[in-house]
Design a protein around this nucleic acid. Structure first.
Length: 409
RNA sequence: CGGGGCGUGGUGUAACGGCUAACAUGCCUCUUUUGGGAAGAGGUGACUCCGGGUUCGAAUCCCGGCGCCCCGACCA
């Protein structure tokens, strides 16, 4: 893409109402736009990165047998009354509204209820199981306080997968596969080194749930990390009993702030029983389906990557999630020879299906470099009078700063 | 929801209760520039968040509303 065509502009300064680093950088670089507190729009660069993240997640979910679906945001309250999660006393972050006929509907903050109800149409025998289905969906949560930029919003994208199995054993097997898939996702997204499988409260369905916590100063959570075992314990369950359970010793653990980038948990039969999702086993007996749920917020993940991978000049995207692979920066000369060479190189790279952002704007070198640093595209190719003298381009790695002269072929 | 802070051109800031609301940046025009946010000249752009009140006089003080940020609580 030609940068002269990109409608977004970078800015020198962050708006004063943003303190969170992720929002400051993403807004300055033109990735996102703040609509109101806790509500952000994605602009071309931001959406490209978000879609890269979605792509990684999608591949990993497909690889464990997940089938992609798309449920509705509007929720029929009857499903939620069946599980006792409709009342505002039970769930305090509902967005609710009314239809013209007066009926109440909710905006989904998660989708266990509707999917469980939906599955009644498709699950009747043990032969129908296992099933796992996932979606990328906009969730609505009426948070009392939105904060930390894109990390905690009132409207946000979420990948949620739900698993349906015949019994606990089958569920547990899938759960482990899902956990491994999650580990891979965060590795591929570039934050594997600082992301820990973290034991957290399991709610009423199982002893623990597993969170994926990325250590980072901007984090809202406190976890206790065991570096060698690459695992951690969330503060909410940090007690002697749990440590004994997990065979950990306090002295080996280090307290760290972290961001919850994913959470998986066993649901048991809580939803299937409440909504009547049963199947017939081989003996013809009716049994409730055993469920699990597995969430990742791709937007929050993007914000987390921005927090982890950035420096004083701007964003530093890992290749896997960068909006473009290459930032072609042309420093034009009077004669037009640089422009000609840059245009040709852009065509050539594009034909090779390399994703290039071509800075063909008529601005000074300093501004182009500053913007390039801010946007954080992993590779920068500079083409200029100087580089053309040796018939080459200058490449610079955004992360390492390493510079090389590469001949143009 | 408790506590604290803040609303001034697009953005970031300034302005004692008192003159035409200032500076930087952005944007437009011209000239000169062209490897780290170039220089000069000219120009554009604000009912100072909204509504009341006090005052001869309000961006500034008071009351109410709305919005935003931070700390805490909450976040199956």
């Amino acid at each position: 893409m030609k940068q002269s065509q990109l409608f977004t502009k970078t800015r020198r300064e962050a708006p004063k109402d943003e303190v969170a680093k992720n929002a400051q950088l993403l807004i300055r670089a033109g990735f996102i736009h703040k609509e109101m507190a806790g509500v952000y729009s994605y602009l071309p660069l931001g959406l490209r990165t978000l879609n890269k993240i979605r792509g990684i997640i999608r591949e990993e979910m497909n690889s464990i047998g997940g089938q992609e679906i798309h449920l509705t945001a509007l929720q029929d309250k009857r499903n939620w009354e069946a599980t006792d999660r409709w009342s505002d006393e039970k769930v305090d972050n509902w967005f609710k509204t009314n239809l013209k006929n007066g009926n109440e509907v909710g905006l989904g903050f998660t989708h266990e209820e509707p999917l469980t109800a939906l599955m009644k149409d498709h699950i009747s025998s043990f032969r129908d199981l296992p099933i796992s289905a996932y979606q990328f969906q906009t969730k609505f949560r009426n948070e009392e306080r939105a904060k930390s930029g894109i990390l905690r919003g009132r409207e946000f994208l979420m990948k949620d997968l739900y698993s349906f199995n015949v019994d606990d054993k089958a569920h547990q097997e899938f759960y482990e596969k899902a956990k491994m898939a999650y580990v891979k996702i965060f590795e591929r997204a570039g934050i594997g080194a600082q992301t820990y499988v973290t034991f957290a409260s399991g709610g009423s369905f199982s002893k623990y749930s597993h969170e994926f916590q990325t250590t980072c100063e901007a984090g809202e959570d406190l976890i206790y990390v065991h570096e060698e075992k690459k695992m951690a314990v969330n503060k909410e369950v940090f007690n002697d009993e749990v440590l004994k359970d997990l065979k950990l010793e306090k002295s080996q653990l280090v307290e760290k702030k972290s961001i919850e980038v994913g959470n998986i948990f066993s649901l048991g039969t809580r939803f299937s029983e409440a909504l009547g999702l049963n199947y017939k086993d081989a003996e013809g007996k009716s049994k409730p389906v055993v469920m699990g749920s597995y969430g990742i917020g791709p937007g929050r993940l993007m914000g987390t990557i921005a927090e982890v991978w950035s420096d004083d000049k701007g964003l530093v995207w890992p290749e896997s999630v960068a909006p473009f692979a290459v930032h072609l920066v042309a420093l034009f000369d009077e004669a037009g020879t640089v422009k000609k060479a840059a245009d040709e190189l852009y065509e050539k790279l594009t034909k090779k299906r390399i994703e290039v952002l071509y800075d063909d704007r008529d601005t000074g070198a300093g501004a182009k470099f500053a913007d390039s640093d801010l946007m954080g595209i992993p590779k920068r190719y500079v083409i200029s009078e100087k580089s053309l003298k040796s018939n080459s381009i200058e490449t610079k790695d955004r992360l390492t700063g390493k510079v090389e002269m590469v001949p143009i072929r």
